[in-house]
């Protein structure tokens, strides 16, 4: 079974391009992530950290969190 896949892809011409593409995807993804993180406000980050500590009737929207 595997031999059929192998037979059809026995030589991928220009295979070198694939790792380069994946490297580019990787770099691009993380540049975007880091940029977006940089733009996030402190207020937003503080709010999300509080989620597990909320009481059952509290929400992060109505901001009843104790600090």
């Amino acid at each position: 079974m595997l031999r059929y896949i192998k037979h059809n892809m026995s030589e991928i011409a220009g295979i070198e391009i694939f790792p380069i593409i994946s490297l580019l995807i990787f770099v691009l993804f993380f540049v975007v992530v880091l940029w977006r993180m940089y733009k996030m406000t402190k207020q937003e980050t503080d709010i999300y950290g509080q989620i597990p500590l909320l009481e059952d009737d509290e929400t992060i929207e109505n901001n009843d969190t104790k600090d």
Binding site: F26, L34, M40
Partner: peptide, 27 residues
């Protein structure tokens, strides 16, 4: 990420860091 804040009654140190390290880790 759940039990340490609960046990310490403190929020996680850095939410931003948790986002970055989550995606970086799984990738």
């Amino acid at each position: 990420y759940y039990f340490v804040p609960k046990a310490a009654n403190r929020p996680i140190y850095s939410y931003k860091l948790s986002i970055i390290h989550f995606w970086a880790l799984i990738f």
